[in-house]
Design a protein around this nucleic acid. Structure first.
Length: 503
RNA sequence: GGCCCAUUCGUCUAUCGGUUAGGACGCCAGGUUUUCAUCCUGGAAAGAGGAGUUCGACUCUCCUAUGGGCUACCA
């Protein structure tokens, strides 16, 4: 059996969209599952839309997510070059072959003429029914064609599609899709504007030459798949044509349409894997990486948007995804992007991290806040706070009281928990705390609780006022974990301050 | 407009002719807790509509509706 080879073939027209990331992921999972190769090919045949930096962005995004490339741009391989703009001569050879075989023809119609035609005839399509009315090597006398060519007149090359034939595309996800060739148009294969092939030609030539066995791409390509099947046939490669799988699209979380860059701005979540700055406008778009997502969480989340193992498992490592993935289990319909679930995945992965790892991520944030803290202490705090947050970036809000004494007290909390007798109670608590030498959470808790029990104080009244004094609000970690970390003198100092400020 | 694809809780999905239609996110309630959060338990919540086929349809077929995609010298 031939070795599975798949490719991810994005255009360097900007940041890699999250839907594109999923396509790359599925290709990768499929390749690894079958012990095959994953290629990265850059489809830069549209010189107008080329964006500098996009290629590097794509490579970095895949690297961050752990989607490894075996061959291609940035990696090399036996089928180089992997950038289509560097393969022009190769494509030239094959258009010529199509031209010589009479399967393609030259068309001289200018974009303006085509535009005029489209305005004049509704639903105009350049095909068998109209091509003889246009200016091309099929409609014009041979001498006229030659004259135009030698005069250097610009022309495109179009595929010549024979009408009235049912073309079947076998899709691994959708089954057979049958389309009548009459509805297909004579697509441009070679552009005159920039002297490069179109996607259709370059794609087929490369997939064939690079020995691609499975084409796994977005559903937006399904309508042109019959054209691609025809091209394989025209080029004599029908017997080695790759298998197709068209993936369902990622849709907007609300309303209609596919997920777009604008949705990120609108709903406040990233639609790009890593931050992207548009080189033309300087406009920044947020990325999952910079938003504090773990790559494993993004991968897990994306993997389940359109695929599932058929079990009730939700959390999958890359290795598990690889061993379980199959195209048969990819769903057929588009998936609305559920950002809330994405956050949940990150929460799950955050809980799996060691306190040490989390501390390493939290330390720079503390540094930003001008907090210098001992790593050991931060590790401890990470352990106490991680379960309360989805992202490391949210930890400061949950832990600032470990580092800073409250400067204000929540008004409602004060009203509820700071009564006339509270100052005296807190004063007594200070005395109790002062007597403690082993200020560990456990011992302090025992001592304080014993004191409360002995005097038959109201537990809630004491503890809440205590908390209010230390935190400034009625929230936060276990109280005696706080006292242990901030220490005896700071604990007492905060109590004193509260008594002073709230009385 | 034409062509193609799709349609199970609000969302992601399981089910591959016979199920009390399952799970997860989110939501709601209760419990744990000194607080908030976490966590645990429970709850509400779905087969687009209509015809067939069949002893029996979420599952197969057709129609309609709805959603999506494509319809460039963009990919």
């Amino acid at each position: 059996m031939t070795k599975v080879r798949v490719r991810f073939a994005p255009s360097p027209t900007g940041a890699l969209h999250i839907g594109g990331v999923r396509t790359a992921l599925y290709n990768y999972l499929f390749a690894r599952h079958h012990g095959g190769d994953m290629l990265l090919r850059i489809e830069d045949t549209d010189s107008n839309r080329f964006v500098p930096g996009a290629e590097a962005y794509i490579i970095e995004s895949l690297r961050w997510l752990g989607i490894e490339i075996d061959e291609g741009v940035g990696k090399g391989g036996n089928y180089a070059p992997y950038r289509q703009s560097e393969r022009k001569d190769i494509y030239l050879e094959y258009v010529q072959q199509l031209l010589d075989a009479g399967l393609a023809y030259r068309a001289f119609d200018t974009p303006e003429q085509l535009e005029a035609k489209r305005n004049e005839v509704k639903n105009f399509q350049y095909d068998a029914s109209t091509r003889l009315l246009m200016q091309n090597s099929l409609s014009l006398p041979k001498e006229e064609v030659n004259r135009r060519i030698t005069a250097g007149e610009a022309f495109v090359v179009r595929i010549k599609i024979e009408p009235n034939e049912n073309i079947t595309v076998h899709d691994l996800i959708r089954g057979d899709v049958v389309v009548n060739s009459s509805i297909l148009d004579d697509k441009v294969l070679w552009k005159s504007a920039d002297g490069l092939p179109t996607y259709h030609l370059a794609n087929i030539v490369d997939d064939h030459l690079m020995r691609i066995t499975h084409v796994i791409r977005g559903e937006e390509w399904l309508p042109s798949a019959p054209l691609h099947v025809l091209l394989y046939r025209y080029l004599g490669w029908a017997d080695t044509m790759p298998q197709f799988a068209h993936l369902p699209l990622l849709l907007k979380p609300e309303g209609n349409g596919k997920l777009s860059k604008r949705d990120g701005d609108k709903f406040g979540f990233p639609v790009f894997p890593i931050e992207w700055t548009d080189p033309a406008t300087g406009e920044k778009s947020s990325g999952y990486r910079e938003s504090g997502y773990f790559p494993e969480a993004v991968v897990n989340f994306l993997a389940l948007l359109g695929w599932n193992a058929g079990t009730e498992q939700e959390i999958f490592s890359m290795q598990e995804l690889i061993s379980l993935f199959s195209l048969e289990k990819v769903s057929k319909s588009g998936a609305k992007f559920d950002y809330e679930k994405g956050k949940w995945f990150n929460h799950q992965y955050l809980q799996m991290k060691s306190d040490e790892e989390i501390a390493d991520l939290f330390l720079p944030i503390l540094k930003d806040k001008n907090i210098s803290a001992d790593k050991k202490v931060v590790v401890k705090i990470a352990g106490l706070v991680k379960e309360r947050v989805n992202f490391v970036s949210e930890m400061w809000a949950q832990s600032s009281f470990f580092f800073l004494a409250p400067t204000a007290y929540d008004e409602k909390a004060v009203q509820k928990r700071w009564k006339a007798e509270t100052p005296a109670l807190m004063q007594e608590l200070i005395t109790v705390l002062e007597s403690i030498t082993d200020f560990s959470a456990h011992n302090t808790e025992e001592t304080v609780k014993a004191w409360i029990a002995k005097h038959e104080y109201n537990m809630g009244a004491v503890m809440n006022a205590f908390r209010l004094s230390l935190v400034g609000e009625l929230k936060g970690a276990h109280l005696f974990d706080i006292t242990e970390i901030i220490g005896k003198s700071e604990t007492i100092s905060r109590l004193k301050k509260a008594i002073e400020k709230l009385t």
